[in-house]
Amino acid sequence: MAAVISGPIPSPGRASKRMKGVLPSKQGAWIFDATKDQYLAMWCFATLKNHALEISRPHAITSNPRFAGQTVTQLASTLALQIARFVLAEALTEGTPLTERMLAKRFDVSRSPIRVALRELEQAGLLRVSARGGYQLADPQAAADLSDETASDNAEDIYLAIARDRLAGEIPDRISENELLRRYPVTRPRLLALLRQMSEEGWVERLPGNGWRFLPVLTSMQTYRQSYSFRQAIEPAALLEPGFQLNTAELERHLCQQRGLVSGAIHTISSVQLFVQNSAMHQAIIDCSGNTFFIDSLRRVDRLRRLIEYRQIVDRAQARLRCAEHVRILELVLDGRNAEAAGEMRMHLAALGPIKAYTAGASLDHPHAHR
């Protein structure tokens, strides 16, 4: 499981004194991998040195690979969504008991995150405490609201409004559900579904009670530009890893998706879905490297830059050109021409960084332009 430590990165000397087994890095940026209680360190996030660090530790809250890398809080929010979908799939009726033991076994997790998830679902109105203790189904209809984030016509508008307001500093680090309900025209079940989506994406987490905390993201243009410089260092290198292994089915799926965007879908896709598809494509390529540090690093950069990306006014013509470059890179990778693909990736990111920085800067200068 990935544990997060927020704050500035300590100097190599101070870190070495505090953390037994840590190898100092002259760049002062750290990621750790725990194997048999020994920690290995490597250069990473040098350009993002004031953001949170991730430390991989052995964990026992789940053996299910679907939930790997999530904190207990993030896992609970993910499980709440999965439980709502389970209620729908099984067509459960009001009064049906839902026990921690049964759900923990079904989702292959410990009972602790299940317990937190059940409390969330009680607050959402899906469950109630039964007379004999434990939980039972209170409102099956709430499961439909919770399990389908896109059912409401204005769901994405609300999602983007929260992202914009957070980036503009109009939402504090900690906020209650009631305050969010006062700010935005959304029902509580729909709001909770959106918050769970944000939690799965890694930019918000639940607090005890009905509060939520927004996690650090990139908010300045300097760090946003640095994120692209960092990607130019790791993504081409990942393509040249000796252990690179094709996931042909996954890359072909992304190739089909990118060809569809080039063929015209780019003009109708939402900005959120465009970011999701494009970032997933880059992640799918780097996943093939088998290098844990590259893989986790890109995932973290995507989380940090997500809100600035959402704020951008999408230039559809430019976006189509970028997708055409994606097609070229994917074709080269699938053809086994990784050295050429690495060169194309480097040029792609070098060209993309200034374009994105310019449009993101315009969005930051006009924070309400999208409304």
Results as ranks from 00 to 15, higher is better:
L98A: 01
V129K: 15
R182K: 09
F230E: 08
S56E: 11
R231W: 03
R253D: 03
M281T: 09
L160D: 13
S279H: 09
G209V: 01
P97A: 02
A80W: 05
L146A: 04
G169E: 02
V116Q: 09
S152C: 07
R85Y: 03
A3K: 12
A144Y: 14
S220K: 11
S220V: 02
G264L: 05
A29P: 09
G202R: 00
A233K: 14
L79M: 06
M42T: 12
N210H: 05
S297L: 08
L349F: 05
M345V: 00
I61G: 10
A29V: 06
R85Q: 08
T150G: 13
F107Y: 03
L349H: 07
L239Y: 05
K36W: 13
A142P: 15
V301I: 10
L40W: 01
E179W: 06
L298E: 01
H348S: 04
L298I: 02
V129N: 15
S112D: 04
L332H: 09
G353I: 00
S297N: 07
S77A: 12
R322M: 06
V109F: 08
A342K: 15
H59P: 02
R259K: 07
T73F: 13
R119S: 14
A124D: 09
L239P: 03
D33H: 02
I83F: 08
I9P: 15
Q312I: 07
L192Q: 08
E90I: 05
P24C: 01
Q27C: 10
N178E: 15
D173G: 12
E149A: 15
T187N: 11
L246E: 00
G202C: 01
